[in-house]
């Protein structure tokens, strides 16, 4: 069996995020809707973790809880040794600015600003000098394949793929421990989606920890660890190995088998 339970997947490096007994329930009148049900999971910085599962399984909710973007109803999330579930709102915000980078399904850039300005707005959280932020953002824009003419345009004036790559730059500008991506290719065509996934792969190869939610198997193929969620709990996971440019028949087959077993 190529899959193991989450508790068996501990690697040599210590997990940067540990969730224990994580629950999340939404108040839906007389019948509270339970999205996460006592979930335990460890996330390692060396992984490109992909969270998959059917609609409504709690993928995005888990991602938001792990990143301190949403508060769980129960359980704890420890991020780099700190219990983020015990933090106040402003402490959580400070934590996020240093530890997490976010890429959302819609790019969520500030549409009245240029792509560069979006990066500056994020960079201003940890750096005072505009020059330092711009220098860093320039490097990142180049890394994600955006030229100067593009990054000077407003978010509404560029393609979805370019905007999403700009949102990756924004996510990286403060050197986060983990980048959290919530279906980052969900709103893109296949060409743009490919470009964004290539950026993620390159980042992972350079040692950037990534946690990505997706329901797309091609996107999932980029991950080094696939978690499968159903009804608010992780039911299984697989480690297809590190993604290479040629894709690798073995990885694709391993993922297909895994997903088939999960009933995908």
């Amino acid at each position: 069996m190529s899959t193991t339970t989450p508790t068996d997947t501990r690697q040599a490096d210590a997990p940067i995020v540990s969730a224990r007994g994580l629950t999340k329930a939404y108040d839906a009148g007389d019948h509270p809707q339970c999205v996460l049900r006592g979930l335990d999971v460890d996330i390692h910085r060396s992984d490109f973790t992909v969270i998959m599962g059917p609609s409504g399984s709690g993928k995005s909710t888990l991602l938001h809880a792990l990143a301190g973007l949403d508060r769980p109803s129960g359980g704890t999330v420890t991020f780099d040794g700190k219990d983020i579930t015990a933090m106040g709102d402003d402490d959580l915000a400070v934590f996020r600015r240093h530890a997490c980078g976010f890429v959302f399904q819609q790019h969520q850039l500030l549409d009245g600003m240029s792509l560069m300005d979006n990066a500056i707005v994020a960079g201003a959280l940890t750096m005072r000098s505009k020059r330092d932020i711009i220098a860093k953002a320039r490097t990142l824009f180049t890394q994600v394949g955006l030229d100067e003419r593009t990054w000077q345009r407003a978010a509404t004036q560029v393609s979805g793929g370019e905007a999403q790559r700009a949102s990756v730059v924004r996510a990286l500008v403060n050197d986060p421990a983990l980048v959290f991506a919530d279906e980052p290719t969900g709103a893109l065509n296949s060409h743009h989606a490919q470009a964004v996934l290539d950026v993620f792969t390159r980042l992972h190869h350079r040692g950037q920890g990534i946690v990505m939610v997706t329901h797309d198997r091609h996107s999932a193929l980029r991950g080094s660890r696939i978690l499968y969620l159903r009804d608010g709990a992780i039911v299984d996971e697989c480690r297809p190995g590190t993604y290479t440019a040629d894709g690798g028949q073995g990885r694709e087959r391993a993922l297909s088998d895994f997903l088939e077993r999960m009933g995908w």
């Binding site: 240029s114 300005d117 960079g123 201003a124 000098s129 505009k130 932020i133």
Partner: peptide, 21 residues
């Protein structure tokens, strides 16, 4: 809720990053 494109980029505004924002 379409907002107008800001007239000048942050890089061209005076002050540090926060002030420019």
């Amino acid at each position: 809720a379409g907002r107008r494109r800001q007239a000048r980029p942050l890089a061209a505004l005076p002050g540090n990053a926060r002030t420019a924002i």
